[in-house]
């Protein structure tokens, strides 16, 4: 487990949040608490800024007339502001059966659900339109992005049930048709696929001008492989079983999973996809901080 990046925010323990149940409450608690923690940060503060005045046109809302300026120049002018809700924030959540795995109190899906809720809530606070797509081997549910869809997103997250195997390549090819508008896409998955196929899938979305981020969630047991004693391991998605003596395979397994994540990270970097790998035992603020750092970067370059 990494150290907490923001001292004072030790309350974002995934296990504790998972017990709250109400995702909106969880999201508000996490995000507002998190923003309070960042109060002195010089990088934040994307507010609605004044852009320009333009002459009043019939049909304009008279409430937008700058009466102070009229007093000076005796002409009607309308105040215009920097665009405020011009970004779609879509979460592409993997709800395949493998996401139901969790060696401790929190499964990967629980962690992903909370993470998605928090980030959606946060984006909604920033006046972004929020949307959600859950998928396994196919698209399970779609909540179109909208400034008013946060409750829909949270409800969809709450009822997301892991089932079936995952197929990221097929799903993302279909999804590429969905996004007509430039969006910020956050993919949350355990990425049990060949890294090349994952990148192919990403390429489907990236090519449409979407800003793509990938959060790779893995349980501690998947990373450390702490099992002991000869036993059979069953694939949670396919039901396939193989005999395993974990103590003999542990080192090899660790090497392979590390190589897998490093490969995905490298390929994501090559494609311009932001990639984070999270251990589900890590506090949520770590993931939030990663996300906000990215948002701050986007604001600066826009």
């Amino acid at each position: 487990m990494t150290s907490n990046p923001l001292p004072g925010l030790q309350f974002l323990d995934p296990a504790v949040l998972a017990r709250i149940g109400n995702l909106e409450l969880v999201a508000r608690t996490v995000v507002e608490g998190f923003l309070g923690g960042l109060h002195r940060s010089p990088h934040l503060g994307t507010s609605i800024d004044f852009a320009e005045h333009r002459a009043y046109m019939p049909g304009d809302d008279i409430r937008r007339i700058d009466w102070r300026l009229y007093g000076r120049v005796d002409r009607y002018y309308i105040k215009e502001y920097e665009a405020d809700t011009n970004t779609n924030f879509n979460v592409l959540l993997d709800v395949s059966k493998s996401m139901s795995f969790g060696s401790a109190a929190v499964t990967k899906l629980d962690y992903a659900r909370t993470l998605a809720a928090c980030l959606s809530y946060f984006a909604n606070q920033q006046r972004d339109r929020v949307g959600l797509i859950t998928w396994d081997e196919d698209i399970v549910e779609i909540v179109p992005p909208s400034a008013k869809h946060l409750p829909n997103v949270l409800h969809a997250l709450a009822r997301a049930t892991p089932q079936g195997p995952g197929n990221i390549e097929r799903v993302f090819r279909k999804l590429a048709e969905q996004f007509k508008r430039r969006s910020m896409l956050l993919v949350i998955s355990d990425f049990y696929e060949d890294p090349a196929k994952i990148l192919d899938a990403f390429a489907q979305l990236r090519g449409r001008g979407n800003d793509l981020m990938a959060m790779h969630l893995l349980d501690t047991a998947e990373l450390e492989f702490p099992y002991d004693g000869a036993t059979s391991f069953e694939d949670i998605e396919t039901g396939e079983r193989i005999p395993v003596i974990p103590e003999y395979l542990r080192d090899q397994y660790r090497t392979m999973i590390r190589a897998h994540t490093e490969r995905i990270e490298k390929l994501c970097g090559d494609q311009g996809v932001d990639y984070w790998m999270f251990n589900t035992s890590m506090p949520l603020d770590y993931a939030l901080f990663a996300f906000l750092s990215r948002r701050q970067f986007l604001t600066r370059v826009r």
Binding site: S98, I236, P243, I245
Partner: peptide, 26 residues
């Protein structure tokens, strides 16, 4: 190494299935 009766359900065997099973180590 008596195999346990309880089966360990694991998210994916994509890595484990690539490792050869070495019975001699028993």
């Amino acid at each position: 190494h008596k195999e346990r009766k309880d089966v360990v359900v694991f998210p994916s065997l994509m890595f484990l299935s690539r490792i050869p099973y070495q019975a001699v180590r028993k």
